[in-house]
Amino acid sequence: MKNVVCPILENRALTATVWRMRLGVSCELKPGQFLNIALAGKYLRRPISVCDWDKESVTILYKVVGRGTEQMSRMAPGECLDVLLPLGNGFDPDCAGDAPLLIGGGVGCPPIFGLARTLVARGIKPRVILGFNTASEIILADDFRSLGLKVTVTTADGSEGVSGFVTDVEDLSCSYYYACGPEPMLRAVYNKIEASGELSFEERMGCGFGACMGCSCKTKYGNKRICKDGPVLKKEEIVW
């Protein structure tokens, strides 16, 4: 973990509520890890998962849900952010097998994108299912397609793609799956897909690096901290 003050290179709206921000920072990252961002006037940092990264930048996608993220959305390129990174365990691409399935729901899609790019670089072509409430909230679908991947989009209101939830997609067969999204989606995925997999969880955090015990959860192998021992948990260890 390191603490950097880095410039915002890009900050623009993708939908009515989701923004893409690119930060000028170089860091070794694993897909599924996150940043913890300090904001002026806010005491706690904001944990945001990493979508993508290259040698000189890290890209995050964030949803404006409160005053902190609203403040982020008003920041301009050239302004700087104080960031702790990398945080969390991230996904384990070694488990993918030959036909993995990636499932993202809403703002759970960004960490899945970084994982997709990592798998593609290893010559593995995962299938991708992205779930949203409605067509206007769709993010990243074209980015996944530009990696040469088959993408199935679902919308709860049926305004685009498959009508319903990610688990309403007919073919959910896979060698292994990786999922990130709201907890009801994770539960549904956990219950429906027989293959083994990894699920990325969200929790209100204090520190983000394992010190405060603010985001603890019970697992079959003892108590874990979502921020440090997660946010990715193996299917086999989850206690709902």
């Binding site: 006037g41 806010k42 005491y43 706690l44 929790e203 209100r204 955090m205 204090g206 405060c212 015990m213 603010g214 985001c215 603890s216 959860c217 019970k218 108590n223």
Partner: peptide
């Protein structure tokens, strides 16, 4: 002790609130 259920953390202008519960 596992401590309290989550959410255990909240925030205010001048700091935070915790209800970890002696985990």
């Amino acid at each position: 002790r596992f401590g309290n259920a989550t959410p255990r953390i909240a925030e205010f202008e001048g700091g935070l609130l915790n209800a970890v519960g002696l985990q």
